[in-house]
Simulated assay, not measured.
Amino acid sequence: MEFVLSSGEDQNSNITATEFVLLGFSDVPHLQWMLFGIFLLMYLTILICNGIIMLLTRTDPALQTPMYFFLSNFSFVEICYVTVTIPRMLMDLCTQKGTIPLFSCAVQLCFVIMLGGMEFLLLTVMAYDRYVAICNPLHYPLVMNNKVCVQLVAACWISIIPVVTGQTYQIFSLPYCGCNKINHFFCDIPPLLKLACGDTFVNNLAIYVASVVFIMVPFLLIIVSYSKIICNILKLSSAGGRSKAFSTCSSHLIVVVLFYGTATITYAQPQSNQSESMGKLLSLCYTILIPLLNPIIYTLRNKDIMVALRKLQTKLSTYGNT
């Protein structure tokens, strides 16, 4: 293991690690290849399903609407999000080493937080889109035009990047001395702060502030949007109209509950109250399981996407027979 020693200081108490060791699933070596197969299959499924959604929303004329534009961006972020963590985890399962340089750990953490934050912001934008579509349908084409849609997505990226970059720098400015073993399968905030031998009060405060800004505030905006949506839907006289309106929102609501449930448990509670095993289990949920469920939820519960998928299958079948 590599270490950097401060000149003239005690070797036992002032050692700063230049690399970490991701323990991952080293406590269950007998399940190594089974876990590798399961996670590889899940990863490929996530890539394929989200890739199909992106393809359909870009090529099918019926899906050239703001709702599917945001869904396409969401699928792109999902692909990037899982790619930051799962390939590294698969490599560690194969090699059973888990060593990761300090810089690589910082880069991974930065992208995990950035892409995770982007998902929350995009879910908020998608809720706003549904609010305008259902509560102000006559003004919808004007309010949610192509330029506005692009600006909303760009605003999400512009707002999240500097905050995440600054927070990552702050976390890795801490001294990491002594043990350099991270009981996790990727570089995440809670296990990293547990290894820091300096005062982490400022870091924890910054995390809570960022959680409020990028998790709780968007969540409140989503609640407000859907409160107005539900009130508007209940005013509809047609049962068919109410059913159609609810069906367009139900998939998004399910995804919101899944995301915010795991994120709140993981980051909003004091880290001392959270066991390492529970932290890893929750991380598996929001890094693998939820990204796996999201395209399935949006596909199976969305008639437009199902129709577009059948069209694509027909085209592929026709092309294959010629």
Rank of each mutant, 00 (worst) to 15 (best):
Ile160His: 05
Tyr169Trp: 10
Pro162Gly: 01
Asn146Phe: 00
Ala154Thr: 05
Pro137Met: 05
Leu174Asn: 12
Ala133Gly: 03
Pro137Lys: 03
Leu138Asp: 15
Thr165Cys: 12
Pro141Tyr: 09
Tyr176Gln: 11
Asn145Thr: 01
Tyr169Asn: 12
Pro137Trp: 05
Lys181Trp: 08
Asn145Pro: 01
Tyr128Leu: 08
Cys149His: 00
Gln151Val: 04
Pro175Val: 09
Gly178Val: 11
Ala133Met: 11
Cys177Ser: 15
Cys149Lys: 05
Ser173Leu: 08
Pro137Asn: 01
His139Ala: 11
Tyr128Met: 09
Pro162Ser: 04
Ser159Leu: 14
Phe185Lys: 06
Ile158Pro: 03
Val163Lys: 07
Leu142Lys: 13
Ile134Glu: 01
Val164His: 06
Ile158Leu: 15
Phe172Arg: 01
Lys147Met: 06
Asp129His: 03
Val132Asp: 07
Asn146Gln: 10
Ala154Met: 12
Asn180Leu: 07
Asn180Met: 07
Asn180Tyr: 12
Gln151Thr: 01
His139Gln: 12
Ile161Asp: 03
Ala155Lys: 03
Val164Arg: 06
Asn136Ala: 11
His139Glu: 14
Asn145Cys: 05
Val150Ile: 15
Met144Ala: 03
Ile134Val: 12
Ala127Gln: 04
His139Ile: 09
Ile161Leu: 13
Asn146Ala: 14
Val153Asp: 02
Tyr140Lys: 07
Asn145Tyr: 03
Val153Arg: 02
Trp157His: 10
Asn136Trp: 13
Asn183Asp: 15
Gln151Pro: 00
Thr165Met: 12
Lys147Pro: 06
Thr168Phe: 04
Cys135Gln: 01
Gln170His: 14
Tyr128Ile: 04
Asn136Phe: 15
Pro162Val: 10
Val132His: 02
Gln170Trp: 08
Ala133Gln: 14
Asn183Ala: 13
Trp157Ala: 08
Val150Ser: 08
Leu152Glu: 05
Cys149Gly: 02
Ile161Cys: 09
